[in-house]
Amino acid sequence: MPVLAEALRHVGHVTIRNRGTIGGSLAHADPAAELPVALLALDGKVVVQGSAGTRAIGAGDLFVGPMTTALEPTEILTSVRIPRPDAGTGASIVELARRHGDFAIVIAMALVHLDGNGRCDMVRIALGGVEGAPARMEAAESGLLGAEPSGAAIEAAADAVAAGVDPIGDIHASESYRRDMTRVFVKRALAQAVERAKGGVA
């Protein structure tokens, strides 16, 4: 999964990546962190253990708000499981930050698999940095499912994502700039994922 390495390149700087852990980043649940977005797009889950025993939490249920997960106070995250994407899946993660390594204004990650007719039979889009928690963009995904991923279809999906988000605003990116950039980066992630799916590069 080379896309995981691509995701990590955006995390801070070398020293930060040396010290930080994957479990720590997921448990920390920063809304603008890369690994939570990757876990969502790759449809992974975490295994947590507490006084009441062990359970698995799917990515979609893990991130409940800014810096907040579904872990109970007595639980710790003990492992991360990521299913291997089907052969031929194209993946892409792109991000906008003011400086390299800054927390993202927008992180968009997309996974696309095409059937024999060049139509999408699997699409996953995950977004970070835009709202209080990272999330899958399911409405836009289903819009692309079964469709040929043409430029227009990708634009439409990106528009749908941008129209559906409720962006945070700060001094680096106003709400409307974040919404605009959501559209641009979802489009770029999808376009690259499709390109890679066509070329057979994950």
């Binding site: 700087h13 400086r99 390299h100 800054d102 927390f103």
Partner: peptide, 15 residues
Amino acid sequence: QTTSFMDYLIPTAME
């Protein structure tokens, strides 16, 4: 509003 070096952006070797 600029209260830390996460807000006040000094260019690094990457920029």
